[in-house]
Design a protein around this nucleic acid. Sequence first.
DNA 1: CGAGCGATTGAAAAGACTCAACCACCGTGG
DNA 2: CCACGGTGGTTGAGTCTTTTCAATCGCTCG
Lengths: 229, 229
Amino acid sequence: MLEKSHKHVTCATCGAKKDSLFGSFCGAETSNLDEHKTCNYYKKNQPLFIEGSLPRGVFCINEGKVKIFTRGEEGKEQIIHIAKQGEIVGFRAMFSGEAYKVAATTLEECNICFINKTDFLDMVDTNQVLRNGIMRELSKELADRATFITNMAQKSVRERLAFALAMLDDIYEGEMINLTREDMANFVGTATETLIRLLKDFKDDNLIETHARKIEILDKKGLLDLAGL
Amino acid sequence: MLEKSHKHVTCATCGAKKDSLFGSFCGAETSNLDEHKTCNYYKKNQPLFIEGSLPRGVFCINEGKVKIFTRGEEGKEQIIHIAKQGEIVGFRAMFSGEAYKVAATTLEECNICFINKTDFLDMVDTNQVLRNGIMRELSKELADRATFITNMAQKSVRERLAFALAMLDDIYEGEMINLTREDMANFVGTATETLIRLLKDFKDDNLIETHARKIEILDKKGLLDLAGL
DNA sequence: CGAGCGATTGAAAAGACTCAACCACCGTGG
DNA sequence: CCACGGTGGTTGAGTCTTTTCAATCGCTCG
């Protein structure tokens, strides 16, 4: 469990680092990173950055989860991705040279380090492994989003929800899924009421169990079947 | 108009180059590129690559249009992007090290150059301007796809079609839009019949005019209004 | 001239959304 | 300690968009 307050993180001992784009850093690189980062505590529902603002650096999640979303016309959120520990958030707009088209907000209490834009770009320029990692990451996400678009266009809400639950099960790594129904609906791309009705169906089919707002996955394979995969 | 046969393209005189990621190449770089590329003619509806295959290089469009798409369960295509002259296609999977998740097929007769994987990666490794251009491109597309996802999730088919027509008007640069109704439906993310009915509505509202399969945009601003932008 | 594909139309059915009301839980202030 | 207010969750009913299925049309190509 997360400590309910600020915690100083040292890159050399950061548990999230090995899974991150910095995973390959050697000792010197790690201490350089350590010197250039600041460490911050975020409360639940606190924004890291909002749409339209200019990127000032990147965020490296040490602990906690962050939603990445855009807003449609009426301000309705569409969640594109949920980032967890080890993920680096906010670097995409730095390369495009444009303002953020997406926003990022914490879903729970988080410890997140910040690396200044210039420092980060220096690392990218001088470290080929990091650079290749970033390009690989960008490319993979591009492919993921193509699949996301196809799912949105061709699958029913029921199928998309089944798929989303299986995906969230991976993101929550054994912990129970803990999102508001509204966030979940904004991830699946549906109305909150529809989402609730479908969750009940899934409960009736013994695919999931709900514990207040938390969702336990009982039959992941069943969900993936239902999702048509 | 495009010549109905193979045409040899020289990078130094290629009209599409200035708009491409190679736009910044100096004389030496351009002739290096020229030596490493082959030039090919494609008929209409000919694949450049298919899902699941491993990338062997990149395709640089000299003339013509290419659809980039994924397939859903029943094999139904979802068009993610339509690439035109000057665009480089197929490099995303090269960085991810995975097989293509998307496929690319010509929409009309095309002249397209091919650059071998190793040669291309060499250029990327040694040319910082090219590399930054690619990273910018990848990042921009990532943002575009976030918007695409949001549109799919939150807009009605009518709104999406209006938006798609305005977008296609830019892609076809003054020429009339020339796609099968099925391709257009697969771009908008709807059934062919629905698309046809909506096109008729738009015709009745004097937003567009149809000439056989070709579509002429009469009121682009009206379309964008309708799309809710 | 006939086959076949793409375009179009009609009618019925289904999926999803909206709106409205109500419930349940929780922290706060009196 | 308890009533209050607010947020998030749930349910019901009616409506509307969109899909599906079926049939027809029109044009091009061999």
